[in-house]
Amino acid sequence: MVASAFSAGLRGLRARPGLAVLLFLANLALAALMATPIASVLQSATQGTGFDTDLADGLDVGLVVDIIRDHPTLLSTPIALLGWLIPLLFAWNAVVGVGLAHALRRDGGGFWEGVGRFGLRGIVVSLVFLGPALVSTVVVGAVAVVLVLLFSGEVGVFWSTAVVAPTLMISLLAIIDCMNDYARIAVVVEGRPPLSAFLEGLAFPFRHGASSRLYVLWFAPAILLWLLPTVLELWLGASIVVFLLQQVVLFGRSATTVAWYGSETALYETVAERKATALRELEAPLKAADTAAAPPPEEMEGPDAVPSVRPQAS
């Protein structure tokens, strides 16, 4: 099931490469929007000083500190940006989730159609998931405190705060991310309301081990592609060529997101289909018995009618 879902994700990406382009461009635009004011402050700080070229060739901590002291907006600007950036990113990620799920389901529609139909519910679901994220943070903090108390001393503190707590935090957030993905997919595939989707998302990874394996399978390339731009910069330095290379890698990272969602959507649909099949198979004998015992319905019901099991008259 994992392999077929993984393949389905790749097929989805191949079929809808425009989604990766959209995601990449949107992220690039947002990032550029944030970077531009900082670059503008740097430009005004160094323009005409003659240090521009030197700093472009390598940072000098003394000059950097002088710039920060003389141009405090260099720090205040990004902080102010975070005020609107975080809510915007939050909403964007939520709608991207439902948009991708809608676009990548078997007989899916358009991305924007998905955003329009399920965007609000996607945002609500993501908001609800802030609860478990908050609880996880508190739990990890508490665990770290307990570990530090139990293993006081610098070795214990190091392993508790620099290894165990971050690993635990990343693991918990990954689980919540996985749950959040399936909750959004549940909104799209089954049309669930937010609370029902949230509960379904919470339960899905525990009920279906394939979802965790699939998550790990995609997590590995995603993290590699996420780190690669930094590695490239450290290795080759910063230049326009490196920037373009980084953009290629980050496009790959966006494509991974699309394929990842495609895989999760395929898995969810497979599970839902099997559930429906199993339900039909379970209902079939009952229905047959029902048909034999009861007189035929006097009139046909509408196409949306859900088969029901009626208690037999004794």
């Binding site: 992220n27 690039l28 944030m34 740097l42 430009q43 326009i240 920037f243």
Partner: peptide, 19 residues
């Protein structure tokens, strides 16, 4: 040069943050 180079670097950093 410096501002442009830093703009590129910050853009990539922010792209990573968004991901």
């Amino acid at each position: 040069r410096f501002a442009r180079r830093e703009q590129g670097k910050f853009t990539v950093r922010f792209q990573q943050v968004i991901h």
